[in-house]
Amino acid sequence: MNKTLPDTTMAARIDAILAQLNTVIFGKPGPIRLSLACLLARGHLLVEDLPGVGKTTLAHALARTLGLQFQRVQFTSDLLPADILGVSVFSTERKRFEFHPGPVFSQLVLADEINRATPKSQSALLEAMEEQQVTIEGTTRRLPEPFFVIATQNPQEQIGTFPLPESQMDRFLMRIHLGYPDAAAERALLRGRDRRELVEELPAQVDAPALLALQRQVTQVHVSDGLLDYLQAIVAHTRRPALYQMGLSPRAALALMRAAQAWALVDHRDHVLPEDIQAVLPPVAGHRLKLNESPGLAPEQVTRRLIEAVPVP
């Protein structure tokens, strides 16, 4: 049957990754699946939620499970670009400047509360995300492969925060919400071991080359003409004049396709279905779209309406 991947080991690996993540974060299979798909599609993830719902744990668990080197940066209003990127310090021993790489030079960077830093510091990170490289004092340094940023953001408007502008939100492939766990999951959490300890003990399920292979595999997932018709119909709908403040850009369309491919791969398929598009549309398009009228409408409602407005061919 077509339900299996050509390479069964890959499917097994993905299942193992998901299973391990679910042992750490209870009751959130959807967001976990999305964040894995996001990573496999080589995209960066924005987690928007209240403090304490497990954003950091998710990032940490992802890093451990995927065998990635992990760094966390707490964004504050006095954070400087150099605190992220690194700085050259004069070494008195060697009589020359030595570069001390910043936390951005890790495979998985958790940028906590990104909206509390100044726009200057924010854009330092966002440019690094986009370029996959950092230029400091005339030297261009490549970032490690794979490179994955999870940024968190507190959705509540607070004094002294700098919400990310739309153009920068576009750098994130997905924006997801974790939300409160349900009663059973919360009970399991309360009964269970300390998360931090648990995460430290997690074994890596894949190594870097295997992860890169999985990322390559995403681009191999088949996208049929019928599916592209559907995808383009969705994008075209958002570009109808005066309906949205701005439609989905070609970059967003590409992101939507990559995310759907990754989603299909996580679902052990070698081809994309309209269901995949619909599954990844809310996290991929939610932070890129705004209806012209009633800007107060929640992003979930905007994307739900978008899905309902476009018939599946």
Binding site: M1, N2, H222, S224, G226, L227, H271, V272, L273, P274
Partner: peptide, 12 residues
Amino acid sequence: TREYVALRYGAS
């Protein structure tokens, strides 16, 4: 539906 989906969206 499985057959249809394979024909319509499948790789080969």
